[in-house]
Design a protein around this nucleic acid. Structure first.
Lengths: 155, 155
DNA sequence: CCGATTTGTTTTAAACTTAAAGTACCTTGC
DNA sequence: GCAAGGTACTTTAAGTTTAAAACAAATCGG
């Protein structure tokens, strides 16, 4: 009676995909409506907010799962908007360090608060225990995917 | 010591997002390499394969979580490729019904088999029990999202 | 019947995505 | 020093994505 693992995998995958798609769409709509911003922008700000100081573009790319070419445009627009600042490394002029401006940090905090509240409301139906289990399982899954994904890694 | 629900939600969400992003990326790469196709195309075929007969564009959109504007282009290309066919509703000329062609069904089956195997390999690290739990939780989550999402629904 | 609204689908504009090529800078080995 | 090669980032080209506006057909109210 038990489904073979493969069929089960497919079912789980489709449900995960559906759930994340719906959630993403909500977040996207929310960011646009409230902040006239986008998810990729939010991700960049979020990655920078986690840092204690300026980091390089390459380091930022790694945190984001976004290709480096892509990042350039995002950062350009965020710099224009005054949310992040950029400065050339004096020791190596190829490198630039980006960091949140005070306004960027303020803006991000505001977005992040609402974002957290929104996400939480979307998970409201899940009990604390369910959430703990889900966190466990997704953590396991991520580890497996990460290992399977990158043949070699240094960090 | 327990994290408040909101923080927990955020953590879970980020892990889910990361996992699905990685998986999506793999599937995308695979479809492109093996079938010179894309995930959205696969999704359309998949949705049609589940149907017993022709369905309208709107119905298709609902199944897909893809914006309707997007669907037009996808369907156009799939029709060109001979994988699906399209015909105008004689009773309401705004409406069109789309359905898999025999070739489309054959092509989809082939992709689906490989797709299933790939997905399963990505979930290989999870035990049968984990998968059952994960299926449960994602099902609950989806129901909640669906209800919260649409104020009214008839089906 | 005829305008007004609703509904089904398509088009559009702007943002994002990627891979690959390009640019500028640094480093190394003579 | 200076050519050769490597590194950090940007640009490009081609394509996808989305929300929203536009369009077209049907239906409704007078």
């Amino acid at each position: 009676m038990a489904a073979p693992h493969a069929k089960q995998s497919l079912r789980v995958w489709l449900r995960m995909l559906r759930a994340t798609t719906i959630i993403e769409k909500r977040i996207r709509g929310y960011l646009k409506a409230e902040f006239d911003s986008t998810l990729p922008r939010f991700d960049v700000l979020s990655a920078l907010d986690r840092e204690t100081g300026p980091i390089t573009m390459s380091a930022l790319t790694d945190h984001l799962l976004v290709s480096n070419g892509n990042l350039t445009g995002l950062v350009n627009r965020l710099v224009e908007d005054g949310l992040i600042s950029r400065e050339i490394d004096p020791e190596d002029r190829r490198v630039q360090h980006v960091v949140l401006t005070p306004e960027g940090r303020r803006a991000f905090r505001e977005m992040a608060d609402k974002h957290e509240a929104l996400v939480d409301s979307l998970f409201a139906a899940m009990s604390d225990e369910d959430m703990a289990t889900l966190l466990d399982l997704t953590t396991t899954l991520n580890s497996a995917l990460q290992n399977g994904a990158r043949p070699a890694e240094d960090a």
